[in-house]
């Protein structure tokens, strides 16, 4: 019997793509405006570079949190098809993180890799961000069906648990970046804690089962 949510099925991936692409399109438009026809535009504030860093980073984190919400939603609703957007969201998270890193390297560090290295080693918040990016890199590279076959499902699943590390490091990166204890990054961290927390009972049950077996 088809699940009651099934009519939404065909819309899942297009909706995910649209949701993730709109902020990028907005940024591209705002930069085109600034560089091509209105250098005094305040559409993305008087400090467009900082706005861009912030927007890209937050979109990466949003995509990652949404990807981590997919499995709990499936368990809660029993609707299997929702799993089809997990990879879509994960790839968008990686893409935003990549653009975020390139923008930082280019606009703040003048493309100097030695500065990227020293910033990473000296600044804990940059280190956390780099960790998040590096944790997502192998996941993006092994996101194809062919890669799953090559690795085998068990090893592929183990590797893709790096998504948890990426999310934790990403949330820490945001909390550490702002001045003082601000609410916004803590909201992201709290959502992540909930998403990790709902996995705990199952994890504990499986550990217990494995121990008694």
């Amino acid at each position: 019997m088809a699940h009651r949510l099934e009519p939404l099925g065909p819309w899942l991936r297009p909706a995910a793509h649209l949701f993730m692409a709109v902020p990028l399109a907005f940024l591209a438009f705002a930069w085109a405006e600034l560089l091509l026809w209105d250098p005094h535009s305040l559409r993305i504030t008087a400090e467009p570079v900082a706005y861009t860093h912030n927007a890209l980073g937050k979109m990466a984190l949003k995509a990652l949190l949404l990807a981590l919400a997919v499995t709990p939603v499936r368990r809660l609703t029993g609707w299997g098809r929702v799993m089809t957007v997990r990879r879509t969201l994960g790839l968008w998270a990686f893409f935003y993180a990549l653009v975020h890193l390139v923008a930082f390297l280019w606009l703040d560090l003048d493309l100097r890799l030695d500065e990227l290295l020293s910033e990473t080693l000296e600044r804990p918040f940059i280190l956390a961000g780099m960790l998040a990016f590096l944790a997502m890199l192998p996941l993006a590279l092994t996101s194809t069906n062919a890669a799953i076959r090559r690795l085998g499902a068990r090893r592929w699943r183990a590797l893709h648990r790096l998504a948890y590390l990426a999310a934790v490091a990403g949330a820490v990166h945001f909390v550490l970046r702002v001045k003082g204890w601000q609410a916004e990054p803590l909201v992201y961290a709290a959502i992540l804690l909930v998403l990790l927390g709902v996995r705990l009972p199952r994890l504990i049950r499986r550990r217990a089962a494995a121990a008694s077996a």
Partner: peptide
């Protein structure tokens, strides 16, 4: 003297892109 979390060696003048 860097801020504990970021460098203070450079700045972005509002209206400019390079620091």
């Amino acid at each position: 003297v860097p801020h504990p979390r970021w460098s203070q060696a450079r700045e972005r003048r509002i209206g400019e892109i390079r620091r």
